[in-house]
Design a protein around this nucleic acid. Structure first.
Lengths: 391, 391
DNA sequence: TTTTAGCACTCTTCAGCTTAGAGTGCCAAA
DNA sequence: TTTGGCACTCTAAGCTGAAGAGTGCTAAAA
C-alpha cells in the first residue's frame, strides 16, 4: 500500500511544504532531495499518492500539497521528533520562575512559553474539578458586609472570591460558620455539594436563619464556581506571522471562534476523557502502528509523556478551524486530575519540532506542579536565586 | 479663520468619511448634504481647508479625507454626542450582574461591555495603588508549607497570592505574624512599606528568625505585587471588522504593540496625572474653546463625567498605533484613586457615538463601584434577581 | 468680491489580453 | 518498472485602454 519509496516521497513533500508554504513539484523534489530516480517516476508515485488521498493539487499545473490524510500519515508514521535544543530547554525552564506558587499561574505561564516557543497561539484548560473533593473552605471577614471565601481543593488548588454578606454578621459568626461547614463538607466531592447539603451542614449555627442563608448561598456559589473549567488563550496575534493567515477571512473566522470561550473550552474538555490512541483511527494498518510505537519509544520525553494528541483540519469539529491543526497534551495535577495544554495553527506546521516543544513544556509543567504539591521547601536565599537540578 | 461654512463642510466630510470609509468629493457632498452652494464653491472651500491642514488627499483625483488636525477640530468643536439609546443603556446595565463583588471584576466587565458596544478593542488599567494605604494583611494556612496572603487596601480592594513557607511554621505562628504585622503596618502607604519596615514590625514575634524572614519576605512580595498596575485588553479580534485593518501590516503592528503589556500600561498610566484640558492643545482660538465648553455642558453624562480624553493618530506616541485613535475615560475607585478605561480603533471612528458609550459605561462603572464600596446589603431574594433603580 | 459653469487634466481601477513559467499526464522507448 | 520527451493546463505578472471620479483653473455671472 504505502511502499517505502512512497513514504519517503510523502515525507519529503510534507517537510518541504511545511518549510516553504509552496506546492512542491516532481522535478524540484528530485533535485533537492536526491531521490535517485527521475522526475517522471516521482510523478507517477505522486499521482498514486494523490489517488490514495495523501496529496492534493491546488490546480492542475501546481505541485502537490499534503491533504489532511497526508498530514495524518505523517504524524502517525513518519514523524521525526526533534530533540529540544539545550538553549530551548534552558529558556523554557527559566520561564518558570520562583515565585509561582499557584497551579493556575504555572499553567498559564506554560501557555505563554508554549506560544512564544512555537510562534502560534496556545491555550490551556483547567481540569474538570467536579469530582475533586473539597478540602477547606474559609470565610474571611474583610469589612462589615464583605468577606472573602477561600476554597481549597484536595490537590492544593486554591480559589477565592469576594462575597457580600449581611452587615449583621460579625467576624466571630463568620468564623463559626466557616469552621462548621468546613468540618462537615471537607472530603466531599464538589459535584455532590449542593445548597441543601450546605444548609444542612450549618443547621445548628446560632445565627438568624435569614442572615445565615445569605452567607451559605454565597459560599455555595463560590464552591460551584471553583468547578468551572477555565480557558486561557495566549498569543493569538502570532497567527499573523504565518502566511496562511494573510487571508483575512481565515484569520477572522479563526479569531471569532477562539473568542467563543465556552465552545472552545467545551470542545477541549471533551477530549479529556478520550483515549490517547484515538489519533490512530485513520490508520488501521498493523505494521504501521507497530512502526509508530517503535518511533515513539525512541523519542525523549515521550516515555514520560505519551499523551499528546493531534487534530488536523477536518478532524477539528469547531467551525472556523477547518484549516488548522490542534496539538495538545494532557498535564497532570494528580494522576486523575488532568487539564490540557496546546497550540493551534495552520495545518502546515513543523509537527516534529512543535510536538517536542509541547512535550517538553508539558513535562516541565508536570515537574513544577509536582514540586509545588510536594510542598518543597525554599532554599535559604531570600532573593529568589534558587536553582534545582531535575532528575 | 474657520468660517461657519467651513465648519459645516468639515463636519459633513468627516461624518461621511467615518460612515463610508471613502474619500469624499465636492459634488457628492453638495448632493448629499444639500449645502445650497455649487460644487465649485465647495471645491474652493475644501482646498482652503486642505491648506489649513484639516483635510488631505490620498491622491490628486480622489476626494478628501480628514487629517489628524481635522479630527482634532471635529472632536473639539464639532462633536455632537449622541445620547445612549435606552436599549443600549439597558444592555450595558444588565452586563453588571449581581455576583460581581470585586472591583477588578467590575472593571474588566466594563471593558468587555465597552468592546462589545463599540466593536473595537477595549482596555483598562488598574489604578496606581502606590500611595494607597494597606488596611489588612492576613496569612492563611492552606497546608503545611503553603499559605495564602490576603492584602486588603483601603478602598476595599483585595489582592491575594499563594506563598510557600517553611514547614516548621504552624498555623498559630502564622496567625501571630499576620496579626502583628497587620497591627503595625495597617494605615501605611504601600510605597512606604519595605522589607525593612516589615522585618522591624515583626521583630518580637517568637519564631526563629530564619523561618520568620522567609515568611516576611513573601508577605513583602505580595504587598509589592498589589502595587502593580494591571492591564486588561479585550476584544482585539474586533479590529478585523473594520476595513482599515484589512491591510495586514497595520493589523499586525497594532496587535504586536498591544501585546507589549508593559509599554501600553506605562503609556496609559502616564495620562492619569494629566490635565483633562489637554486635548485642547491644538486649538488656541478662544472662541472655539468657548463653543466647546458650551457644547459639553449640554451633553448627558458629561456633567458626571467630563473626563474623557481622545488621542488621535500622531498624538499617540506608541509606535504601531499612528493610524489609530484612542478614547479613554477615568473611572474612580475613590476621588483620588482612578484608573482608566478606553477603546482603541482606527481614526475613522464614530466619535460622537463612542464617546457617549464610554461615558455611559464609565458612569455606570463608577456607580457600581460606589455601591460596592458602600457595602450595600443584598436584597432577600437568593436567586440573584435584585434590581435597583439608579438616581 | 463671491459664486458658478465648464472644461481640461490627473489619477485610479478594472477588465481583457498576452506571455513566461511551472508542473502535470501520458506515451513510447529503454 | 523506469525514463525522456512533449503537449497541455493553469497561474502569475505585466501591459493596455477605457471608464470614472475628482480636482484646479478660468472666465463669466451674481
Amino acid at each position: 500500500m504505502l511502499t517505502e519509496r512512497k513514504r519517503h516521497i510523502l515525507r519529503a513533500i510534507i517537510d518541504d511544504y511545511v518549510l516553504n508554504a509552496e506546492p512542491v513539484g516532481s522535478k524540484y523534489l528530485v533535485d533537492k532531495y536526491k531521490l535517485g530516480v527521475s522526475s517522471a517516476t516521482v510523478r507517477n508515485e505522486m499521482s498514486e499518492l494523490e489517488e490514495l488521498g495523501y496529496l492534493e493539487k491546488p490546480h492542475t499545473s501546481a505541485g502537490r500539497v499534503p491533504s489532511d490524510k497526508g498530514y495524518r500519515a505523517y504524524i502517525d508514521l513518519l514523524l521525526d521528533l526533534k530533540p529540544v535544543s539545550q538553549t530551548d530547554q534552558d529558556k523554557i525552564e527559566s520561564f518558570f520562575s520562583d515565585h509561582m506558587n499557584e497551579v493556575t499561574t504555572l499553567v498559564r505561564q506554560s501557555a505563554n512559553v508554549l506560544s512564544e516557543q512555537t510562534d502560534f497561539p496556545s491555550l490551556v484548560i483547567s481540569p474538570r474539578y467536579s469530582d475533586t473533593s473539597l478540602e477547606q473552605i474559609k470565610l474571611l471577614m474583610i469589612e462589615p458586609g464583605k468577606a472573602l471565601v477561600v476554597v481549597v481543593l484536595s490537590p492544593g488548588i486554591v480559589k477565592d472570591r469576594m462575597i457580600r454578606i449581611p452587615h449583621e454578621i460579625k467576624q466571630e459568626d463568620l468564623h463559626l460558620i466557616s469552621k462548621i461547614i468546613e468540618q462537615k463538607l471537607s472530603g466531599q466531592k464538589l459535584d455532590q455539594i449542593t445548597l441543601i447539603t450546605i444548609s444542612a451542614a450549618a443547621e445548628d449555627v446560632p445565627v438568624p436563619e435569614a442572615l445565615l442563608n445569605q452567607v451559605l448561598f454565597e459560599a455555595y456559589v463560590s464552591i460551584k464556581q471553583a468547578e468551572n473549567i477555565e480557558l486561557y488563550i495566549q498569543g493569538t496575534h502570532r497567527l499573523f506571522n504565518h502566511p496562511e493567515f494573510q487571508e483575512l477571512s481565515l484569520a477572522k473566522s479563526f479569531l471569532d471562534t477562539m473568542h467563543e470561550e465556552g465552545i472552545v473550552a467545551g470542545y477541549m474538555s471533551e477530549w479529556e476523557s478520550m483515549n490517547v490512541d484515538l489519533e490512530l483511527t485513520e490508520t488501521n494498518d498493523v505494521e504501521e502502528i507497530e512502526q509508530l510505537n517503535k518511533t515513539r519509544q525512541e523519542q525523549p520525553y515521550m516515555k514520560e509523556n505519551p499523551s499528546y494528541m493531534v487534530r488536523i483540519g477536518q478532524e477539528i469539529t469547531l467551525k472556523g478551524l477547518e484549516e488548522c491543526s490542534f496539538i495538545t497534551a494532557a498535564y497532570k495535577i494528580t494522576n486523575k486530575i488532568t487539564g490540557r495544554i496546546g497550540v493551534i495553527g495552520p495545518k502546515r506546521m513543523e509537527y516534529g519540532k512543535i510536538i517536542s516543544q509541547i512535550n517538553f513544556i508539558n513535562y516541565t509543567l508536570d515537574q513544577q506542579i509536582m514540586e509545588l504539591a510536594s510542598g518543597y521547601d525554599r532554599k535559604e536565599d531570600i532573593n529568589g536565586e534558587k536553582k534545582e537540578e531535575q532528575a
